[in-house]
Amino acid sequence: MVHDEPVYDPKRTGSWLICTACGTQFPTADRKERTTCPICDDMRQFTPPTGQAFTTLDEIRSYAKNVWTPFPCDDRFVSIVTEPKVAIGQRAVLIKTPRGNVLWDCITLIDDDTIEKIKALGGLKAIMISHPHYYTTNIEWARAFGCPVYITSEDEGWRQQTSGHQIVFEEAEFDLPIDGAPSGIQVLRLGGHFPGSCVLLHGGRLLVADTLVTTPSGLGGWDADAAGAARAARPPGMNSYAFMWSIPNMVPLDPDTMRRMWDILKKYEFGSTHGAFLNTDIVKTAPEMKRRVLESMQIQTAFMGFKGHALMEEKLD
């Protein structure tokens, strides 16, 4: 129980301003008080050519809905995406565990239908957000389900609202607690895109958001042609991920940062990765997935001109 915390009340917050570019909610309905979005004014993001604009949850609820799509490879994971697209268009992922449900990342739209569906599945025990671009309406979600929302200490300064539901953590690697006990969900703070950017690992599936950016060549199907005929193996030298400080502005991460990310990630096994958007899922085997991550880091390092960097000497056991 969070004391002195307002309860979820869509009428009270439905008119609050929401940035149309990133989906972040601000605790005011006054368009003279709020004229800019600090998230979009940051060099990692952007304000559209048409200029800063705001919407509200009331407006979004009038035309949009959340669509549910179970992972084809594992129905313990369900993508939740708003249609038509709102702001960045990322997905939240509902993760079903024996100890309760956890939401990975957040989307702006929360409405009665979404709340009813999640409560029918047992509600939420926790929300874990990968980085500030997906903070959106996290407090509305936390209040609706009476659960904590986890945010890294390195990125807490990007919060546009604070709440007693928010738990700011400092650990680089930890098991996300549910009702005070381990859940089996590993949170890995890799950094990179933001200083506190995280990935989540559960059941051999690595949810990467934008911390690892899934590339078209990572998703490409070289095992068969469009008619199903067998083809040769995937060509060598293809990447599966890019590692970006800014995705929309195409600013890559440096080799030292990628090396720090790899030093954490290489300790874990995972057989698939699942990016920030629908259809950014790579499902293979654990050895191949780790090989793809390391090869992608080394491809980026080499083409940035750092062929002598220590990351190029890393090998899998």
Score class of each variant (00 low, 15 high):
A209D: 14
V213L: 13
T214D: 11
T214A: 15
P216S: 04
S217C: 10
G220N: 10
G220F: 03
G221H: 12
W222N: 00
A226S: 08
A226P: 05
A226K: 09
G228W: 13
G228Q: 06
A233R: 11
P235T: 03
P235M: 00
G237R: 00
M238W: 04
M238P: 08
A242K: 14
F243E: 01
W245P: 05
P248W: 05
N249S: 15
D254Y: 06
P255H: 00
T257R: 10
T257G: 05
T257M: 06
R259M: 08
M261K: 12
M261D: 13
M261H: 08
L265F: 06
K266C: 08
K267H: 15
Y268D: 09
Y268N: 07
Y268Q: 10
E269V: 05
F270K: 06
F270R: 05
T273D: 02
H274A: 05
H274I: 07
G275K: 03
G275P: 04
F277L: 15
L278M: 14
I282K: 04
V283N: 03
K284A: 05
T285M: 00
M289K: 03
K290R: 15
R291E: 07
R291V: 01
R291Y: 09
L294Y: 09
L294N: 06
S296N: 01
M297C: 07
I299T: 09
Q300E: 02
Q300D: 02
Q300R: 04
T301Q: 05
F303Q: 15
M304V: 08
